[in-house]
Each structure stands twice: as C-alpha cells, then as structure tokens.
Amino acid sequence: MTNEWTDACAIDDIDEEDVIAFEHDGHEYALYRTEDDRFFATDGLCTHEQVSLADGLVMGTIIECPKHNGRFDITTGQTKGGPVCEHLKTYETQVRDGRLFIRTG
C-alpha cells in the first residue's frame, strides 16, 4: 500500500466532462475532468455491482453507473440516487506540467 502521488495520465487523455479508468497496484480508479477543467478521482467500480464507472456518463459533477443508473457526486463520492447506498472513496488530485497525479493508497 502506497500513500504517495502517482502519475496517472496526461490531462488531455480525458475529454471535457468525461471519465477514464486508471489501474494502479491492482486497484481501479476513475479519473474525471469537468467542463471547467477541474480534475477528480474516485474508486473505479460502482458500489452496487462492481461495474467500471469509466463506461458511465458524466453530467456536470455527477457520474452515472453505466449499468443500473447508480449516481455519485464525483467531487465528494456521495451517492445521488439510483440503487446504490455506499459512497465512493475519493482521492486527491493534482495537475503538474499537463499530467494528472492522484494520491493513491
């Protein structure tokens, strides 16, 4: 288990108002970019049925699970409706020289 900043991707790997998956140390993360170029990171799998959130739709700061519409606020990990009740874990992010770093662990 690390507790350090991990270089996750180039910021342009993520479209505006979208999400990609990132794997590190056997753990899947979801990395988000908002329309106004803020970056967030959460656990990558929906807390309902462990579906990859990277295939879901981001609207504003809400991610919708692609499978059953579970919704989370990407800035806090809080559930926002649908069949989910467990919040998502969030991770700190930092942008340096066009790269996105997340605090893993």
Partner: peptide
C-alpha cells in the same frame, strides 16, 4: 459490449 454503448444510450 456495454463499454461501447452505455454512454451514448444514456445521452
């Protein structure tokens, strides 16, 4: 495959 179609269906 779900990864191909899920976002566009939701839109």
């Amino acid at each position: 495959p779900m990864r191909l179609l899920a976002k566009d269906l939701r839109i």
